[in-house]
Amino acid sequence: MGTGGMDGFDEWLERELRQNASRNTGPNPLPSQSRYQAAPLQGNALSRFSFALAAMVSTKTVTALALSAAVIVAAGATTEAVITRSANPTDWGHQVVLQVQGCKDALAPGGHGVGACVSSFASQHGRQESKTHGTSSPSQHPNGGHPSGQPAGGPPSSHPHGGPPSSHSHGGPPSSHPSPGNAGGNSGNRGAGSNPGHVGKP
């Protein structure tokens, strides 16, 4: 790091700079007192994991998850309420539990399976629902009438158990599932914000 071809001004400049620098140097701070001690090294596996975790638990993601959960719960509750005709959640499964228990009790000793019995109940229930809908005005139908144009009291053509179309869940979860790709939009912006570049060997 030599300096060649110095004139009087250069010598004066160096002298002044060194004197000035010596006046401005204080105690050398310890690495433990430095700001970088609190920062993770870029590329560290642990830091990458913590950044990813922080990104996943970002506000946006939490909001989206909460909204999706609320929509799913609401849709399930609506479906159950339509099927059981009760707004009380304790009634929703009660009918089915009673029926299954009845089917088990009616099972002959050594007999297997209650599927046929439960299926029969479901078919009966479906027919009852169809009749009910047939006698009620289209405006009372949860969907405001049969979109297929079939007579209201007609057979429930394509339902496997003959259940009414109204027993289908029309309020399933919307397609707005939180996309993992959107979780934490700013997760990739950590590290050395600007690449300081490299210098070659002098």
């Binding site: 870029q42 590329g43 590290g191 050395a192 300081p196």
Partner: peptide, 15 residues
Amino acid sequence: FLRAFRAWKSWKEDA
């Protein structure tokens, strides 16, 4: 030093 520390892994030994 904070910035340098974050980029320390990418420092090339020949520099």
